[in-house]
Amino acid sequence: MPTGLVALLDDISVIAKAAAATIDDVGVAAAKAGTKAAGVVIDDAAVTPSYVTEFTPERELPIIWKITKGSLKNKLLILLPAALLLSQFLPWAITPLLMLGGLYLCYEGAEKVLEKLGGEHHGETLADPITDMAEFERERVTGAVRTDFILSAEIMAIALGEVSAEPLLSRALILALVAVVITIGVYGTVALIVKMDDIGLHMVENRRTAAARAVGRGLLHAMPRLLSVLSVVGTAAMLWVGGQIVIHGMHELGLHGPSDAVHAVQHAVEAVSGVLGGVLGWLTNAVLSGVAGIILGTGIALMLHKVFKVQTGAEA
């Protein structure tokens, strides 16, 4: 009996060690996959604050929570099963679907640029009076979750590319971990950004030291400028990421011209930039991808609104 008990404990120990090793492997793989998707994560964090403008302070966090829940549903209930099924049965379909998502981002970004340049507005905008705040909030959340879906799809696709050789169960665990950690990180950061003015006001009114009150005033003054910068960054991010998705997708499908041209210019810039080559090369790639995004997006917007007379919903 003691011998049997010892053997059982030995077996349990072996199983526990194997499970711990598997968890460690999943964590490492998830960290690697999440790092690869960092560029899209930054874009997601830059885009989202624009959807929380024009609301009272008490509605900001509830709206961010609604968007967060929508993002988790996007990733865990739709994109994760779809990614696993596609990678298992239809791996060839992933690239065309991502390209459609990239074209949508190009369209959204280009439409915002056209409207800023004095073009025709389609649907309700922030320049229009808000007659029904509840409906306006619903539309803003819907728009944020819709944009998040495209960015989340790119995040999951990048992560999937890093773990495609893993067994199905490990692949699912890694993608789920990436989805949860990235969503919490992105929308936690967004919550801090949009509440920065409230934090500043609290410091001004309740802190005793002059230094703390000065920091609070700095936060209050910085908040409007930060939101304006993030709005610009968010629009640029849509164009950059969307253009990059389409160019990379064309390369994957055998149309190498656009990708080769972008990389040729990038490498030329890197070659003459010395120690700044990496940064300037990346920036060159981003700018060229953004140019492709604005061209593609403008074409789609003109086609929809001038040819097919499509009216979109609320815009940010």
Rank of each mutant, 00 (worst) to 15 (best):
T3P: 00
G4P: 00
L9N: 12
D10E: 15
D11W: 04
I15Y: 12
A16Y: 10
A16I: 14
A18P: 02
G27S: 07
A31S: 14
G34H: 07
I42K: 04
D43L: 10
S50C: 04
E54A: 12
E54Q: 11
P57D: 09
L80D: 08
L80G: 09
A82C: 05
L84W: 08
Q88H: 13
I94N: 06
L100P: 02
C106D: 10
E111C: 01
T125S: 15
L126V: 11
E137K: 09
E139C: 10
E139Q: 14
T142M: 05
T142D: 01
G161C: 02
P167I: 12
L168V: 12
S170P: 00
R171T: 13
G185L: 05
D198H: 05
L201S: 05
N206Y: 08
T209H: 06
A212N: 00
V215M: 00
R225Y: 10
S228E: 13
V229I: 15
W240K: 11
G243F: 01
V246R: 01
H248V: 15
G254K: 02
G254P: 09
V265A: 07
V269Q: 04
V269K: 04
E270M: 11
E270L: 02
A271H: 14
V275T: 14
G278Y: 08
V279A: 13
L280G: 07
L280C: 08
A286L: 09
A292L: 01
G293I: 01
L302R: 03
L304Y: 07
L304F: 11
H305K: 08
V307Y: 01
T312L: 06
T312M: 07
G313N: 00
